[in-house]
């Protein structure tokens, strides 16, 4: 599936993801006062076609935020349209959500999830990565080429909030050059 990583590196990367996503899930669970379940992290290198397909879903909202530092890339948060109202309610937003409060909710959720994921990840690898604020984007309105994380390492995890229909995926896309840095950091950890 991915020849880029040795079995040991894959295991380590998956476990690091587990730990950072566990933190993100905890942050979300505390915010909404409900249990959050996590999928097993998926680590893949994607082709441009697969990447474009991922951005082709009309049942979800997308946010993106870039990060800079030892490793560079972008975090995409994919949030289901279904269940936004019930999450809003759990977070004391006034429902039904109007356009502005919906944006606010989506950006807040994205920032919490992506922030906890990335910081947990970078911290364990002793790398620094500074995350920008998220923006909502509409891939349908853009050339996929503008989303230029088309053929590189992608790490993905899915969050589901129990007792609501809401689910979300966080996708960390790394620049090719960042993949090398990441592998070196992983190897240090495995020594």
């Amino acid at each position: 599936m991915n020849t880029l990583l040795s079995e040991e590196q894959r295991d380590a990367l998956q476990e690091l993801m587990n730990i950072s996503m566990g933190r993100a899930a905890n942050a979300l669970a505390r915010l909404v006062g409900a249990k959050v379940t996590l999928s097993i992290p998926r680590i893949v290198s994607v082709t441009p076609v697969e990447f474009a397909q991922m951005l082709n879903d009309t049942d979800v909202w997308y946010t993106r935020q870039s990060f800079l530092g030892h490793i560079r890339g972008e975090v995409l948060t994919v949030l289901s349209k279904a269940g936004c109202d019930s999450i809003g309610e759990l977070m004391d937003y006034e429902v039904p959500l109007d356009k502005d409060t919906l944006s606010e909710l989506l950006l807040e959720l994205a920032n919490i999830l992506a922030g906890a994921c990335l910081s947990g990840f970078a911290e364990q690898l002793a790398l620094n990565a500074k995350l920008s604020m998220p923006t909502i984007f509409f891939p349908q309105n853009q050339e996929v080429a503008q989303v230029h994380w088309a053929s590189t390492l992608m790490m993905e995890v899915e969050f589901k909030v129990e007792a609501s229909q809401f689910d979300s995926r966080v996708v960390i896309c790394l620049e090719d050059i960042a993949v090398d840095t990441l592998l070196q950091a992983l190897n240090r950890l495995l020594e």
Partner: peptide, 8 residues
């Protein structure tokens, strides 16, 4: 020793 650190 867990990565799932939710109160539940």
């Amino acid at each position: 020793i867990s990565a799932d650190i939710q109160p539940e």
